[in-house]
Simulated scan of single mutants.
Amino acid sequence: MRVLRFVSLLGLLLGSVPAVSAQSQTAPARTIAPDVVAPPAVDPEEIERVAPRAPLSEIGPARPPGPLAGQTDWRLARPLVTAAGRLEAGGVTVVLAGIDIVEPERRCRGRDGSDWPCGMRARTALRGFLRGRTVACDPVGEGDGAVRRATCRLGTRDLGAWLVENGWAMAAGHGPYADAQRRAIDNRRGLFAQGRGNPAPAADAPPVSILPAGEAASGLGG
């Protein structure tokens, strides 16, 4: 008796599946808002191409990167330190005014006659001091080239003064950092750690440069 009831129930269940499937296949799709969704019938011959509108304002040429004329407190966000006294940001190279840069390739001779990578040490020192923080600069002189001279600061700390007084750059002649360099020599900091008043370059040391040759020759180095 139980077997018959189970077979009957199974037959009812199996028999209802094709009926539902057939009903879903034959049910017509319902159209929703045909006047809104369907595109209107347009005769291509009636379409007219109109001229583009005039620009809202005249588009001038892009200005060179860097500060505007007379701008102060120019911000360099996360500048790249390429040398102790040279920064790059926004397509502009900023050279700190008032110092002579010790290039990264520069090697200095110690008291014992051995040479050491003083240029790389100087660059690393400035990178560690900045730690990717924003620097504010005041451009020195006119110009809008890719290389600009400027005095820069981190907060209220003058970067040129920091480099010179810690012995990682030399004060340029007639510059404002002569006293800072004397303190570096007296305290034997950075380049003067060996006790030399003028750190001697190694025999194969490349020449030191601050600006491109044209600007250096014109006396813009200090």
Rank of each mutant, 00 (worst) to 15 (best):
T82R: 07
R109N: 07
F6G: 04
L154E: 11
Q25G: 08
G222V: 02
V3F: 14
A54S: 11
V135G: 08
G190Q: 04
C152N: 01
Q194L: 11
P65Q: 04
L130A: 00
G190I: 06
S21Q: 09
A51F: 01
W116Q: 06
A27P: 03
A161L: 09
I185C: 13
A19E: 09
L154H: 14
E165H: 07
R148D: 06
E103D: 11
V42I: 01
A62R: 15
G90Y: 00
R123M: 14
A161R: 01
P212V: 04
P79I: 04
G132W: 04
A172Q: 07
P39I: 00
A122D: 12
G145T: 02
P117W: 05
G66F: 01
I47C: 05
A97G: 06
R78K: 07
W162D: 02
R196C: 01
E142W: 05
V20G: 03
T82K: 05
P67H: 03
R63K: 11
W74P: 10
W74V: 12
A178K: 14
P139W: 01
P44L: 06
R106A: 13
D186G: 08
Q25A: 03
D179Y: 09
T151G: 02
P207F: 07
P65Y: 02
R148K: 02
L130R: 02
S21T: 02
A38K: 00
V102S: 00
R182Y: 08
V36N: 00
D186S: 11
V7A: 11
A216L: 12
